[in-house]
Amino acid sequence: MVEYKDMLIGGRTDKPGSAEGFKTGDWRSFVPVVDMDKCIDCLTCWVYCPDDSIIIKDDKMAGIKLSHCKGCGICASVCPKKAIAMVED
């Protein structure tokens, strides 16, 4: 834990991307499971994901990063190929 003397005053930060360290994946009750055979790499899920949970490699859908996935199911609902299923976690 950072000590109060080492923190900037006023709840400010000069380090971008600090929300990355605040893991919210354990809020989830449903987890998205991808059927890669059905996926056409349209990346609609990446566009719609309200967090940062769709992994992209070489412009292709490469799975789901669960550290910040809250299981909202938006990716599953927007997938045009029904390639993502929401399964109880």
């Binding site: 834990m1 709840g11 930060t13 971008p16 600090s18």
Partner: peptide, 26 residues
């Protein structure tokens, strides 16, 4: 001003969310 928002050479974020550990310390 200390850490002003318009100091583009030293960018900072203001008004962030704190978890319990940071809130109490702030």
């Amino acid at each position: 001003a200390r850490y002003p928002l318009l100091d583009h050479r030293n960018p900072v974020s203001h008004g962030l969310m704190d978890g319990p550990d940071f809130y109490y310390q702030h």
